[in-house]
Nucleic acid binder design. Structure first.
Length: 477
RNA sequence: CGGGGCGUGGCUCAGCCCGGCUAGAGCACACGGUUCGGGACCGUGAGGUCGGCGGUUCAAAUCCGCCCGCCCCGACCA
């Protein structure tokens, strides 16, 4: 049950974030530091995210499987960069069944190694390729500083792992999945994202190249919302994933991996939320429309409820909830469901019964502006149309916000200023040195080198050396 | 791991500096009644080893020591 006002976003963004998650019952803190309990309402959102992504994976030929959570420590050590990147944040099991284990088991931080091991057993011939497997799983990374959904010790995600005969095929797969993530973000989550390549320092430990979709949150900070990695032959060589080609010659595979996590829930909260609470994108919202019946006595209740039932059954194609609680007032329910981000509210009271109407209120527009009375006969088309409209308006609002905080600073002085409350899109020479200094001096990191380049050349925003690509810089989560 | 804050009914906190009878408030919860188209109200009630351990004292939520935990801000990260 919600109590009174949230901390406004403008006053304290992270406080707002924590409060809205707990009050809307998306998640709660677990008894273990850095761990969260995903509550039913939060999990329902995640399930819708899962379905949207899973459908796209299946459409592109992928199949699901499940690999073990425990990975022999020695597996991690087979890929040098990989183990260096992950060792600081590993959880390791050293005792099992009361006995000290001969070899410690790592709780998977990601599954490239164990899947690589299995692929080496499964792949013999070019005829076995490609392998296109995804798994929905939990993983553990022992983070210092945690935030609900954004960074927890344990999180849920999907990780796709594919093996291919050629580099070109694997690169194509990497970009195909990046495209699927971008499509999902825009079409279902109503989040505008920028697809691009990660810099060498930001890329996945063990990858040849990493790609990302980057989104701007409501406080202008960037959130990496999905990643897709071209792993080259790094893991194929470490795990001996080889096949015989048409010429009977032994070749190493080319592999990829790609993932989206429960962090996406954080992205949705921070992209669309407002001072009233959550605003869920209609295509992912666990409840797309809530019906609030309004009556003062049993007589009115007797007239209102049949209409509520009628409307509910007409809207069977949507995720609809009837809030029939008697212990709280309609006014309370309005605020409660707004806080929980439900895109549409349908009010049905005695006056509506009389006139054959319902009141329809949209979450993305506050107060009277978003409220309209429509005929009961038109309810299905009205809801269908409004949900689409809300999706579009949420997307546009987020895109406009992002564009309003996007800068192309003329020099480094201006750069330092704009990244305090926005992103900079600047030429960068590509040297890790400039990247590090910029980070030290401004806290802004390279977010991605967008696939979509303006063309031409320029001078590095930091050192002035010739640069061939423009890069997004921002403070990030 | 550094800096800051905090542990008192389910939640938010007061009380602690300056020890003293039975530990308080608001919200939430239960019951009854009046309410109900933008966060209702009245009444009654239930609920607490004051984070843990040890010490000082006639007496500790309060003073002292140690430990544990959480949140926030930084260095690392889906």
């Amino acid at each position: 049950m919600a109590d009174e006002k949230l901390t406004p976003r403008s006053e304290n963004y992270s406080e707002w974030y924590n409060q809205v998650i707990q009050r809307a019952e998306l998640a709660d803190y677990a008894p273990v530091r850095g761990c969260m309990v995903v509550r039913p309402y939060g999990w329902a959102l995640w399930e819708n995210i899962q379905q949207s992504l899973d459908r796209r994976f299946k459409e592109t030929g992928h199949v699901n499987a499940a690999f073990p959570m425990f990975i022999p420590m020695s597996f991690l050590e087979k890929e040098k960069e990989h183990v260096e990147g992950f060792s600081p944040e590993l959880a390791v099991v050293t005792i099992g069944g009361g006995e000290v284990l001969e070899e410690p088991l790592v709780v998977r931080p990601t599954s490239e190694t164990i899947i690589g091991y299995m692929y080496s057993k499964w792949v013999k011939s070019y005829r076995d390729l490609p392998i296109l497997i995804n798994q929905w799983a939990n993983v553990v990374r022992w983070e210092m500083r945690t935030r609900l959904f954004l960074r927890t010790l344990e999180f849920y995600w999907q990780e796709g792992h594919t093996a291919h005969a050629t580099a070109a095929e694997a690169e194509e797969e990497t970009l195909r999945m990046l495209g699927i993530y971008a499509d999902f973000a825009m079409q279902d989550a109503a989040i505008p994202v920028i697809p691009g390549r990660k810099s060498a320092t930001e890329k996945f430990a063990g990858a040849a190249a990493s790609y990302t979709i980057e989104a701007m949150m409501g406080d202008t900070k960037a959130l990496q919302s999905g990643t897709s990695h071209f792993l080259g032959q790094n893991f194929a060589k470490a795990f001996d994933i080889q096949y015989l080609d048409q010429n009977n010659e032994l070749q190493y595979c080319w592999t990829t991996s790609w993932g989206v996590s429960t962090r996406m829930v954080g992205a949705i909260i921070m992209t669309h939320g407002d001072d009233q609470g959550l605003v869920f994108p209609p295509r992912l919202a666990p409840i797309q429309a809530v019906i609030v019946p309004i009556y003062r006595n049993e007589e009115e209740q007797g007239k209102v409820m049949p209409v509520v039932e009628k409307i509910r059954s007409q809207l069977a194609a949507f995720r609809v909830k009837v809030d029939d609680r008697t212990e709280v007032t309609p006014g309370f329910k309005f605020n409660d469901w707004e806080m929980r981000g439900v895109p549409l509210r349908i009010e049905i009271g005695p006056k509506d019964v009389e006139k054959g109407t319902v009141a329809l209120a949209r979450r993305d527009k506050p107060g009277r502006e978003g409220k309209a009375f429509i005929s009961q006969e038109n309810i299905v088309s009205a809801v269908t149309g409004l949900l689409d409209e809300i999706h579009i308006s949420l997307y546009n609002r987020a895109r406009d916000f992002r564009d309003a905080h996007m800068y192309d600073p003329k020099d480094y002085n201006e750069f330092q200023e704009v990244v305090q409350n926005g992103w900079a899109f600047s030429w960068w020479c590509g040297s890790a040195d400039c990247e590090t200094k910029i980070k030290e001096e401004t806290k802004a990191t390279t977010r991605c080198i967008p696939l979509d380049q303006p063309g031409g050349t320029g001078k590095c925003i930091y050192c002035g050396q010739p640069a061939t690509e423009k890069t997004y810089f921002a403070r990030a989560y």
